[in-house]
Design a protein around this nucleic acid. Structure first.
Length: 488
RNA sequence: GGCGACGUAGCCAAGUGGAAAGGCAGCGGUCUGCAAAACCGCGAUCACGGGUUCAAAUCCCGUCGUCGCCUCCA
């Protein structure tokens, strides 16, 4: 069976066929690094992490390239404003690259917490100035760009295909929109490939047109093709950048080389907060770090995966709380399997369960093959968990091999493919539920309570349970004895 | 003004021509000394109005509503 993806280039679902059998090259527009990452970044990079994970799960060798923008992203009009990084660096009185270093570390810290696998290559445009200048020179040679006073602009009128990804036509753009007039440009939609930098500018490089720095869009065209070839398989990004950013990426590289840029465009939808647009300019952008003070990282990841990547995601407390409880349901099923494994009798893999597990795997794969339908894939895990819980509570003996097969399936589908970690929650100073000291102390309390219950001293037994509850520990009495876990 | 997406149970969310997945919350029940967890059971004229079809949540037209892009944003 083939993987089906929704391709924004054709606006329909298509069978995914890699250029080279068994190998996938994917480029995803990365963050511009001048502040902490927010939940919009979380949605984008969890989504593409899951796509990359799933492609690997399906046996592809994937090269995942995601840029770290450290120069050239302007604050305004794609060619009129200041460089975002320079602006923030001046405000904070640090070197631009110092600022980038600080927030890049923060970014990877957040992504690590969300169990996002790091890209194979995280290229930075400041390290690819030569290549960017090379592409600009090619565009000038071919008549698709022009130089004015040390800046170089792409000439959109020279490239009729401009607009093919976003479905925009130039003549439709202007009505009612604030357009800053740049007298250097021939057409208002022309965009900067290279910007002249005045003396004293903090980030600038020598070029055939004097000192300056690259425009924002050029980096992605250059770095994607440098590391993945041209054409390559998949270009990912956020829907809000389909125009102008992605459109410009395509135009400049295809105009310069005469070859298609890439075969599939996969774009994730956006994030709202309590139903309203989230934007840095609106001041309601929630940093991931703030979110993680309120929710476990896996809750955030699970929440993002519980809707489709092409649907908008609305962050609300009610929805996140519900996701937290839902994840808990999966986690507790897995930890029940793990607990049972410690005392499981040897024995063969139950044939009926082997077949059942294969059905669930197939259902999961079918869902994910359909444009990475994570909500449907997760539904399969919930159904699996219901059956697993029923099995483990049935009182029937379950062989080690069967339990291992169940556990392997959770690890494979939920862990490897979806990137979920099913460890029990860790709270406060309870460093780890695997901590031997804590575990030993808990054993003592559970034994004491067991003795009290044997003596039908319910008051004493309940006092132990209640006081542990105050400390955030839940006791559960089951046929296999009493288990404890941290409460939510 | 132009372009586009969406509106499915209290909430989140799949499904996009042929008996309405899943989760959270809620209500019964089983289990339990009591709980917790788990399991079983219970809930949808799919925004509204027309139309096409043997058949529509799913296609078409219209209305209302929400959101997004066209300006920085993932």
């Amino acid at each position: 069976m083939a993987i089906i993806v929704y391709n924004y280039l054709t606006r329909r679902k298509e069978e995914f066929k890699p250029i080279h059998e068994g190998y996938v090259g994917i480029y995803v527009c990365g963050p511009t690094i001048y502040d902490h990452a927010h939940i919009g970044h979380a949605k984008a990079y969890v989504s593409f992490d899951t796509i990359v994970r799933y492609l690997r799960f399906r046996g592809y060798q994937v090269r995942y390239v995601q840029n770290i923008t450290d120069v050239g992203h302007l604050t305004d009009d794609a060619d009129e404003g200041e460089d975002k990084i320079v602006k923030r660096a001046q405000k904070d009185r640090v070197e631009p690259m110092e600022l980038v270093e600080t927030y890049m570390r923060s970014y990877f810290e957040d992504m690590d917490a969300l169990n996002v696998v790091r890209p194979n290559i995280s290229p930075r445009p400041s390290c690819h100035i030569t290549e960017q200048i090379g592409l600009i020179e090619l565009l000038l040679e071919r008549g698709h760009a022009y130089e004015v006073n040390g800046s170089v602009y792409f000439d959109v009128s020279s490239w009729p295909e401009y607009g093919k990804l976003s479905g925009r036509r130039l003549e439709e753009q202007e009505e009612g929109v604030r357009v800053a007039i740049n007298p250097e440009k021939k057409h208002p939609a022309d965009f900067a490939l290279w910007k002249r930098a005045e003396r004293g500018h903090l980030l600038r490089w020598p070029s055939p047109w004097g000192w300056g720095y690259p425009g924002w869009h050029i980096e992605c065209s250059v770095m994607a093709t440098k590391y993945l070839g041209q054409p390559f398989d998949i270009h990912g990004g956020g829907l809000e950048n389909i125009f102008p950013h992605n459109e410009c990426e395509i135009a400049q590289i295809e105009a310069a080389t005469g070859k298609p840029f890439c075969n599939y465009w996969l774009l994730n939808n956006m994030v709202t907060v309590n139903g309203v647009k989230m934007g840095k300019s609106l001041g309601n952008a929630i940093p991931i770090k703030e979110m993680l003070t309120r929710y476990r990282p896996m809750t955030l990841r699970f929440f993002i995966l519980s809707s489709h990547y092409r649907s908008p995601t609305d962050f609300s407390e009610a929805a996140l709380d519900a996701a937290d409880r839902g994840l808990e349901r999966l986690t507790s099923a897995v930890s029940l399997v793990r607990a049972r494994l410690q005392t499981a009798p040897d024995g063969d893999l139950d044939a009926e369960w082997a077949a059942r597990l294969e059905d669930y795997r197939a259902r999961f794969v079918e869902a994910m093959d359909d444009d990475f339908n994570t909500p449907r894939a997760i539904a399969a895990l919930f159904d699996l968990s219901r059956e697993v819980n029923a099995l483990l509570n049935s009182g029937q003996p379950v062989s080690r091999a069967t339990l291992e097969a169940i556990h392997d399936l959770y690890q494979s589908l939920g862990g490897q493919a979806l990137g979920l970690i099913f460890d029990e929650p860790v709270r406060g100073d309870l460093v780890s539920s695997r901590d031997t000291l804590v575990d030993g102390l808990m054993r003592i309390l559970i034994d004491l309570r067991h003795q009290a219950r044997q003596a039908r001293d319910w008051a004493a037994a309940d006092a132990i349970r209640d006081r542990l509850a105050e400390l955030g520990i839940v006791l559960e009495d089951g046929p296999e004895g009493t288990r404890w876990r941290p409460s939510r």
